[in-house]
Every structure is written in C-alpha cells, then in structure tokens.
C-alpha cells in the first residue's frame, strides 16, 4: 500500500484537475445568455436596466429586424479585432442591421480609454461619431503606446473634418463625461463583465461566436430567419 500510495495521490490529483477543466469548459460554453431588455428575470442583477446615453450612437434604421448593441473600449485589443468583423457584417447586411455603440472604457487597465471615449463622444456632438469611432479602432496600436494622446486625437478630428477648436473644448465637457457615465451605468445594470460585449436583439452573444466571422454571420442569419416568422 505504501508503495502505491504516492501514485494513487498523483492519479487522484490528475483526475480532479481533468474533471475541473471539463467542468469549467462546460460551464463557460453553457453560460445563460442575458437579456438587455430586462424582461427576463436574472438572479443577483437589478431588474431595472439603465437606458444609457440618449440619443445613442446607432448605424442602420430603427426598424431593422436585427439590433446589435456593442459595449466597447477603444483601447481594448479584442475590441480592435472585433471592429472589422462588425463593420463587415454591417456592410453585408445593410438595412437589416442596426448597430449601437455604448462606451465602456475599462480605466483600470487602459490609461487612454476615457480619453478615446471622450474623443468619440466629442466628435459625436458634431455629428461625426462613427468616423472617429472607426479611426480610433483602426489606429488603436498607434495611440495605445503614446504618453500624450491629445495631439493624435486632435489630428483625427482634423482628418474627419470637424471644428478642432470646438472638439478640444467639448472633449472635456460635462456633456461628454455624462454620456460616458450613462453608458457605463447601462453596462453595469446589464452586468457586462468585459469588452467587447455584444447583445443581439437583447441577448448577450458568446465572445467566441462574434469574433469568428462565419459563426457571427450564421447567428445573424438565424436571427433574421426567426424575425421573419
């Protein structure tokens, strides 16, 4: 017994480790989708869902059968990877999709996240939110490593043809700060744990689905099919 005891211990630990890994993987895949409309009761989450900044930044008609709502952080690398995928879907599905962007800067990790969110919101006050949104994501790697991002963002403002002086004033305005806070409150009320988080017609999509172009396209098609019925 003494001779085989260490091997029994080792085998038990191996069994527990593999079992835990299997359980974690299964738990991760079968996570219950959460509802953004607040109509399904969820445990430990306030039933009242915050509305977010009004009016929201949207692309596509309000009558679109599939509505996507993204919570994003411009400095988060996976959001940068997700951006071209979402853009491609928007181009492919056109008016059948409505895309909404919500600010969720994760300040603890990303020192420029709030500045970037403010730049997008300030551009939004001049009607060019999406132009700034695209530029920030496309050039994420450029400004992410910079110490002072203001000159870069002002350069983007000039590039998209907005009033740079007004942009510089409004980027630090209460209105911009309030919009980011309102979106953040909505993220919190929906228990959004990270970025990018995407809700499709109110249901949270698994990250592995949305980051894969084919899976994401298939999910949108399926949603369009069920909307027809």
């Amino acid at each position: 017994m003494k001779r085989i005891l260490p091997f029994l211990i080792i085998l038990s630990v191996l069994g527990v480790a593999l079992g835990s890994a299997w359980y974690l993987k299964r738990a991760s895949i079968t996570t219950q989708p959460r509802s953004a409309t607040g109509d399904t009761p969820r445990p430990n989450i306030p039933s009242l869902v915050a509305p977010g900044a009004e009016p929201p930044h949207t692309m596509g008609p309000v009558t679109a059968p599939v509505k996507l709502e993204e919570f994003g952080d411009f400095e988060c690398p996976p959001c940068g990877q997700f951006h071209p995928v979402l853009k491609k879907m928007h181009d492919e599905f056109g008016d059948r999709l409505q895309v909404t962007f919500r600010e969720y800067p994760l300040t603890a990790m990303h020192p420029h996240a709030v500045s970037a969110a403010s730049a997008a919101e300030a551009a939004g006050l001049q009607g060019k939110f999406w132009e700034m949104h695209h530029l920030l994501y496309d050039n994420q790697k450029t400004w992410h490593g910079q110490f002072d991002v203001r000159p870069t963002f002002e350069g983007y403002a000039k590039q998209i043809g907005i009033d740079v002086e007004r942009f510089k004033r409004e980027i630090n305005s209460d209105l911009v700060a309030r919009r980011i806070t309102e979106d953040g409150k909505r993220a919190r009320s929906l228990n959004v744990g990270g970025t990018p988080t995407l809700f499709m017609n109110g249901r949270e999509m698994p990250f592995e689905t949305i980051i894969n172009e084919d899976k994401f396209r298939a999910a949108i098609k399926q949603e369009l099919e069920s909307a027809k019925r």
Partner: peptide
C-alpha cells in the same frame, strides 16, 4: 480553459489578461 474558450481574450473588468 479561459484561453481555449476565448473568454480571457476579452478585456474584463477584473483581470488584465487580454493583452
């Protein structure tokens, strides 16, 4: 497991692991 399922690749409010 986080790596395999792609969860940790996201930016999360608790862990700074995405980068």
């Amino acid at each position: 497991i986080e790596h395999i399922t792609g969860q940790s690749v996201r930016c999360t409010i608790i862990a700074g692991c995405s980068e």
